[in-house]
């Protein structure tokens, strides 16, 4: 008996992960990657819309899609961190909306823009952390906690503004809507900030011990605890960082449309979950990443934009998105079942 049998030989490895087919190493890595499916879906939709409409693949439209994706993308970034811990945040849109009205109202009532911005951030950060605190201290399911937060925060935003939307004067608060011209391609500062935020969070998740612990906690909290990871602290930090993302999302929202509307972005929470799930992050936690979420966000926005360009009723956009969500979760389930066989 040899111990080497305890571990699969290279041949056994590829046979195991690729079924009976014999992929080359590189092909296997691409096909086995979690973002392969989402990338393909994005590529196919871009090709179809480019071929069927004359307006889709133009510099201005692509720039528009990127601008449209910043708020949902930023919310989805925070959502990704939470979903990786096997949680979910239904309140992220509401928290960001409260952030926008706090920023707008403070600026309108004579506070300095910087003060308004920082206090808006602080509100989002505090509310994200509050969700995390309730989840970890009271051991409640994140779904319930954030459902409650969604209701409360939405009501608070309306009480605070008397349910009235109001314009925000341009300045620091709307700065992220300004465009910068990169070789004939108009990008907003918001888009650049979004990409930077994805890069930073992506780095934290894949290159630091904290990120590894987020995955471990989402994958198997007991295993994480037994190796000495402080599970509750990791969970709390995930909600805190997500709260920061929601604060930035609020700023991005004001840059996109300079109006603070307490009843805006009502479906942004579900859109962010859609982007995360379509991007290949598992709702069961511990699997996925921000690159997938970026692609998932683009898929949602490309579908919406492309179907509009093709003059298709916007309700069909929702049908298409819904089908994608179910398909993505089904693929995830299947993959999990196959691996845990």
């Amino acid at each position: 008996m040899t111990i080497s049998k305890l571990m699969p030989t290279p041949d056994a490895v590829s046979a195991q992960s690729a079924g009976t087919s014999r992929w080359s190493g590189l092909g296997q890595r691409i096909l086995g990657s979690r973002i392969a499916g989402p990338s393909l879906a994005l590529a196919i939709s871009v090709v179809i819309f480019s071929a069927t409409t004359s307006t889709f693949l133009t510099a201005s439209n692509v720039s528009l899609i990127l601008q449209q994706s910043v708020v949902v993308g930023m919310l989805a970034l925070g959502q990704t961190i939470i979903v990786l811990t096997a949680g979910i945040d239904l309140a992220n849109g509401a928290i960001a909306v409260l952030g926008t009205v706090v920023m707008g109202k403070l600026a309108m009532t004579g506070h300095h823009d910087t003060t308004a911005l920082l206090l808006g951030f602080a509100v989002c950060l505090a509310l994200g952390t509050l969700s995390g605190g309730v989840v970890t201290r009271l051991n409640l399911p994140p779904f319930i906690v954030t459902l409650g937060m969604l209701t409360i925060v939405t009501a608070v935003a309306r009480l605070y503004t008397g349910s009235q939307s109001f314009p925000v004067s341009s300045g620091l608060l709307t700065f992220l809507g300004r465009t910068v011209n990169l070789g004939g391609f108009a990008l907003t500062y918001g888009t650049l900030l979004l990409l930077a935020a994805f890069a930073v969070v992506g780095y934290m998740l894949t290159q630091t011990a904290w990120g590894t612990h987020v995955f471990a906690v989402g994958n198997d909290p007991n295993a994480a605890r037994l190796v000495g990871i402080k599970v509750k602290r990791v969970l709390l930090s995930a909600y805190l960082l997500a709260g920061l993302c929601y604060g930035i999302a609020a700023w991005l929202a004001l840059g996109r449309i300079a109006v603070a509307d307490p009843s805006g972005y009502q479906s942004a929470n579900l859109d962010s979950i859609t982007a995360v799930v379509i991007g290949g992050t598992s709702l069961f936690g511990g699997r996925g990443g921000v690159l997938g979420t970026l692609i998932g966000t683009l898929i949602v926005l490309v579908l919406r934009n492309g179907l509009t360009q093709a003059n298709i009723d916007s309700l069909y956009q929702d049908v298409a998105t819904g089908i994608l969500v179910i398909a993505a979760v089904a693929v995830d389930q299947l993959a999990r079942r196959r691996q845990q066989r």
Binding site: F215, D220, L226, G286
Partner: peptide, 17 residues
């Protein structure tokens, strides 16, 4: 006490990276 989705290296170093 191994995390199934994480790879062998990550599991061996988990908590002591």
């Amino acid at each position: 006490a191994v995390a199934p989705a994480l790879d062998i290296t990550t599991n061996i170093f988990l908590g002591r990276e």
